[in-house]
Amino acid sequence: MDIVEIKNLTFKYPQQEVQNFNNFNLKIKKGEWLAIIGHNGSGKSTLVRLIDGLLAPESGEITVSGIKLTPESVWDVRSKIGMVFQNPDNQFVGANVEDDVAFGLENAAIPRKEMLIRVRQALERVKMWEFADHEPVRLSGGQKQRVALAGIIALKPEIIILDEATSMLDPEGRQAVLEIIRELNQVEHLTVISITHDIDEASNAQRVVVLDDGKIVQDDIPAKIFSHGASLVKIGLEPPFSEKLKEELVKQGIEVPDEYLTKEGMVDWLWQLFSKQ
């Protein structure tokens, strides 16, 4: 079943002359983890804002979880979607962590008794319950993004959209956030749409869509996309380490395999190469 269906979408920003999207089509399956990549300005963020009804298309049709997106249905659609943005500092409204998670539930008029339960469950889920009474400013970037995720989990959405949500985090913070997303995707079958330049994040996806100039230029499994090596940087993805190493090995006169290798695969391949010596 498709949880998001975009048909013949046309959109441009008011101040611009060229179309950002022209007759654009995309289907996203329920429970899928889709990574959207592309260089800055390729239309990634515009696309997810259209799906969330933050921007309105000129023409075309967007359906989310069976609801056709219209000015009347936009709030129903948004209740299905949770969005995490790039900068963890721009997403706080509460004076402490617990209040912050409760904010969305209060807005959704959830009764207080249930609210308290949901806030606690959500914070436990992201391993931040022990910080419930902390001020957001005292948290690290990764902890802030986990609190932002808790705010979303508490609202029980069907789709989580990550708009470069891990790009400002240190490696530990990034891993902690991705771990939670993996659980939500695998255990609770939430649909994940992640906009990213990060290879580790994209490699979690089942499917990668490459956008350029508002068009889908590739739509494939991660391993196929990653095998493009150094040219990935042109489509907005940091090339995987194994591909960068391959290029340097070629410069050293060493013959390398064409297909994409993970880090482990690359070590195995080198081991075999050395064994043949």
């Binding site: 090995l249 006169g253 060493i254 080198l270 010596q277």
Partner: peptide, 13 residues
Amino acid sequence: TEVSLAQQIASLL
């Protein structure tokens, strides 16, 4: 760096 890694792998080989 990948440059020095590749160089060292080549020299080991």
